[in-house]
């Protein structure tokens, strides 16, 4: 019995960490280029609604994910225009994007009344049914929806792109010294636009996966439940490094899965205290890890094209 619970928990941990990992990989690039995209919480929320709605109407998950990419592109352009071209404060812009997203998803969801009772089809597993029966690894790894595999794959790709390609080097340089990058003949503005759009697309797709890989429902208001901010924390905890951030995301995903499992068992701890767990772990992890991380040098500062 306990063995099955543990297997179930491990399976759910990976499933819950997949959207966090995808979102975090985008955010790493944005923060490495010096811009904090605080709006990922809101963009994730929009992506979650977009994923469910499109998959319901178009009856295709590929179309739904594609729609999420388009949505992320549009929202990313908006965030980039404000924070890079208009040089608005990144924290404020992000928080207002979140407020905008909460309002917009509520308005749109109130129109789509059919969706309240219908459930979008969730993602299938990547590996065939027969492999699920292999003990231990079967249920934990092979029964995962294919998005989990994609998330882990994306983490490796992100690591490769950030450290081994020219573009990744440029991104890291922009975050640490934009003036020198501009002197070397690169467009700082263009790079920041690229990373911000990338992070928004990642957040939007992560939102789509959040609903389509687990329940298939959208809940208005608190669907993402602060996962965007958990991702922001995971990026700091992981020291802006894709591999370490992936493990931080898995830790937070595992906490989330654990509290969901514990809620169903007859425990003496009230469920509300279990629900607090992911947030408390996030704050504690941040406190322990924050001093050890190397912050990108112009993290959060606006670039105005002049020597500061």
């Amino acid at each position: 019995m306990t063995y099955e619970i543990i297997l179930d928990w491990l399976q759910a941990s990976l499933r819950w960490s997949a959207p966090l990992i995808i979102c975090a990989m985008g955010e790493i690039f944005a923060e490495r280029s010096g811009i904090i995209n605080m709006g990922i919480e809101g963009i994730m929320l929009c992506g979650a609604l977009c994923g469910v709605a499109v998959s319901y109407y178009a009856q295709s998950q590929a179309v739904a994910l594609f729609a999420c990419v388009i949505l992320g592109l549009v929202l990313g352009l908006m965030v980039a225009f404000l924070t890079v071209s208009r040089r608005t404060n990144q924290v404020v812009t992000g928080l207002m994007i979140n407020l905008l997203a909460i309002g917009a998803t509520n308005v749109i969801f109130s129109v789509l009344t059919v969706m309240r009772h219908k459930r979008a089809t969730t993602f299938g597993a990547l590996f065939p049914e027969s492999m699920h029966r292999i003990p231990l690894v079967g249920p934990v790894l092979f029964a995962q929806p294919f998005t989990t595999w994609i998330a882990i794959f994306i983490a490796f790709i992100a690591s490769f792109v950030l450290y081994k390609t020219r573009w990744g080097l440029n991104v890291r340089a922009v975050g640490d010294n934009p003036q020198a990058t501009a002197t070397a003949g690169l467009s700082v503005i263009k790079l920041k636009y690229q990373t911000l759009i990338l992070s928004s697309i990642a957040a939007s797709v992560a939102g789509g996966i959040l609903t389509l890989a687990s329940s298939g429902y959208f809940a208005a208001g608190g669907m993402t439940g602060g996962r965007g901010f958990i991702v922001l924390a995971a990026v700091v905890v992981g020291g802006w490094d894709p591999m370490r951030t992936m493990f931080a995301c898995m830790l937070f995903g595992a906490t989330d899965a654990a509290q969901l499992r514990l809620q169903t068992t007859e425990s003496i701890i009230p469920t509300q205290f279990l629900q607090m767990l992911p947030y408390l772990i996030t704050v504690i992890a941040l406190t322990i890890m924050v001093k050890r991380s190397r912050v990108p040098k112009t993290w959060g500062a606006a670039y105005d094209g002049r020597r500061s």
Binding site: L82, R86, R87, T88, N89, V92, T93, M96, I97, L99, L100, I102, G103, A104, N106, V107, S110, V111, A302
Partner: peptide, 22 residues
């Protein structure tokens, strides 16, 4: 929907900061 109010609030702030900083 009454959530339109929060959309308008967010838009106002985004425009205020967008116009101001530039």
């Amino acid at each position: 929907s009454s959530s339109m109010a929060s959309i308008i609030i967010a838009l106002c702030v985004l425009f205020v900061i967008g116009v101001g900083v530039a």
